[in-house]
Design a protein around this nucleic acid. Structure first.
Length: 604
DNA sequence: ATGACTCATATGTCATCTAC
DNA sequence: GTAGATGACATATGAGTCAT
């Protein structure tokens, strides 16, 4: 709670808090020089600044200049709020990108602060009118994703047509009386903005197909999962090893070994639940219930009037004691070493685990983003991409690897799937690059620019790509930089590299490697850079800018490694697309970049 | 790979009050 | 008396993180 108790015991709302005294959430353009200053101001005044970019519509995105790609708000917004001493509550419909001044309301117009302990006498009841019911339904249709939340109805309570009803009551009214009349909702985008058809009309979507709420596990889901896990195990494990020695079922489920990649694959095939969700369903429910037991239970249930039910009441979150009181589960004997998962606490801003920084060292598993590839997958992909030239086709290699490595490889090459529906931070970095910075780009091959068509000449050798491999996405900063790097004044390093590259005439790769190694990049990392950029000076130049920006922003080293969907920057996936002549996947590449890449990889 | 957690959300329940 | 309104709270679970 972003409130300060006063001597009188009342609570005064800080500037950057909502009407419900919750911190208003911000995200500040990482490219802004004033980021630190505004973070401090916001946090000091009760707000919360996200470390990672958030796509939530309630998170205000502060930038110096407006973006075309998403709603943004100038820093002036913060200045004005501080000067006036108040700010509006960022509700679901607020669009701060547009003339936010009009949305500022005098603080005195805020509803009176709630006094927590005041004895409430219930207000006289107000009957819901047909108009109010209609209004509730329309609001729900416009924000279908929020219709089960308390907050949404609390927000509705402040709407004029529903004055006199509390949020809880509106929610109750909706749940008990109106839900069955909802029938349809309006189609919304990922920001929960209403989409319009060609005629400017809202698009109605039947509630059942709106897919706006968390999906509950059905009996069919559970049955399918149990069946598929068992089938998977039977395909990949020796039947002799998993045979049960006792009990009513043929297999000993304790001996089942299911890899994470199985669930990734599974979510790819059954995308109505995420990979993690399937995995947890297996771990917390299916395994406890018993896969074979549930199959039998389900099949038996088919013969009953109500049909089979999904697995439930198998978690151990709370238990009841003899008196019927709920008690927390006995804590583990292992003491928690640190407070974890405090997503919305201000402490999270200062969480040292998110502060990689220049001098930070990787903590195993830290910042591992959903959808990122694991070590083996990434390494395998990198290796296959490297080996692809003159060797068997990747898809064939994939097929072979796939059977050997228990599905791990194709996960890495897959563009969607387990991570579908989640934000892949590797991609996010690219979209997070400020358009103003994009303006500093050095242009494409063939443009008039400082580099012209300078390729860094690759030495003749039996395998010129041997030293230019992609690095695995989860490598650490220590894999990228040597101690030398940290001895340099960081501000000068980038300038020196860029000057060097600008002065570059066609040179041998060896000299470039030596030069970059000389300022503290590991040889492997230099190889990676050349691999990503097709060893073209212009792209190396731009890539180094990207690297330093990532370092400035304390980005995970895995995020730093690849530049997605930008002309001239290659990834294992893009190489594979080129190899397979899948040009649709290379639509972001210019023809000259593709030709350059062909030459670089030695494709005919 | 997995156990052990946390967090937020989704859903349900209940006692009491009020209007009719 | 009864249906509906109201407020408060409990419970379940999907989703995610972290440590080992």
């Amino acid at each position: 709670m972003a409130v300060s108790p006063t001597s009188a015991g009342h609570e005064i709302r800080k500037i950057f808090t909502t009407l419900h005294n919750e911190p208003i959430e911000f995200y500040i353009d990482p490219a802004s020089a004033e980021r630190e200053k505004y973070t401090e101001l916001i946090v000091k005044n009760g707000g919360f600044v996200h470390e990672q970019e958030s796509l939530l519509p309630t998170v205000i995105y502060l930038t110096e200049r407006a973006w075309d790609t998403r709603p943004t708000v100038p820093f002036l917004f913060v200045d004005d709020a501080l000067a006036r001493g108040y700010v509006v509550d960022p509700g679901y419909d607020k669009n701060y990108a547009k003339d936010y001044h009009n949305q500022l309301v005098p603080r005195e117009q805020y509803p009176a602060e709630k006094t927590k302990k005041a004895k409430k006498s219930r207000a006289p009841t107000t009957r819901f009118t047909a108009e109010a019911d209609h209004y509730i339904l329309e609001q729900v249709r416009m924000k279908p994703r929020f219709r089960t939340t308390h907050k949404f109805f609390e927000e509705l309570a402040s709407h004029e047509p529903l004055k006199g009803h509390t949020g809880n009551l509106i929610r109750s009214r909706y749940r008990l009386q109106l839900e069955n009349k909802l029938n349809y909702v309006y189609k919304t985008d990922e920001y929960d903005r209403i989409l319009l058809d060609a005629n400017g009309q809202r698009i109605c979507v039947p509630v059942e197909s709106a897919k706006t709420l968390k999906t509950k596990y059905t009996a069919q889901d559970d049955y399918q999962l149990c069946t598929d896990v068992i089938d998977h195990v039977l395909r990949h494990q020796s039947r002799a090893l998993i045979a049960a020695t006792s009990g009513p079922y043929p297999y000993d489920e304790d001996k089942f070994s299911i890899s994470i990649s199985f669930f990734d694959q599974y979510a790819h095939q059954h995308p109505h639940h995420t990979s993690l969700s399937w995995r947890d369903r297996y771990r917390k429910f299916a395994r406890k219930f018993g896969l074979q037991a549930y199959k039998a239970f389900y099949e038996q249930g088919l013969n009953t009037k109500d049909g089979p039910t999904p697995m439930k009441s198998l978690t151990e979150r709370r238990v009841k004691d003899e008196d019927g009181n709920t008690v927390a589960k006995e804590p583990s004997s292992k003491k928690r070493k640190s407070q974890r998962g405090a997503v919305y606490s201000l402490g999270a801003v200062m969480d040292p685990h998110t502060d990689l920084g220049f001098h930070g060292h990787e903590v195993p598993g830290m910042n591992q983003m959903p959808g990122q590839y694991d070590v083996e997958s990434a390494a395998a992909v990198a290796q296959m991409a490297v080996n692809s030239r003159g060797n068997a086709r990747i898809d064939k290699a994939l097929e072979e690897q796939n059977s050997n490595l228990d599905d791990n490889i194709d996960d890495a090459l897959r563009e969607s799937g387990a991570g579908a529906g989640r934000v892949n931070m590797v991609d996010e970095i690219d979209s997070a690059i400020h358009p103003n910075l994009q303006a500093h780009r050095v242009g494409h091959i063939g443009d008039e620019n400082a580099f012209g068509d300078i390729d860094i000449k690759v030495p003749d050798s039996q395998d010129p790509l041997a030293e230019m491999n992609y690095m695995p996405r989860d490598c650490t900063l220590d894999d990228l930089f040597t101690g030398l790097f940290y001895e340099e004044d960081q501000k000068n390093v980038l300038g020196r590299i860029l000057n060097y590259l600008e002065d570059l005439a066609a040179q041998e790769t060896g000299k470039v490697i030596d030069k970059l190694e000389g300022i503290g990049l590991t040889r492997k990392f230099v190889g990676h850079i050349l691999r990503v950029t097709s060893a073209h000076a212009m792209y190396v130049h731009e890539y180094m800018t990207h690297v330093f920006r990532c370092l400035d922003q304390s980005k995970h080293s895995g995020t730093l490694l690849f530049v997605h969907d930008r002309d001239g920057f290659w990834t294992p996936e893009a190489d594979e697309a080129l190899e397979k002549q899948n040009y649709a996947a290379l639509s972001h590449m210019s023809e000259s970049s593709i030709n350059l890449r062909r030459d670089f990889l030695g494709f005919a």
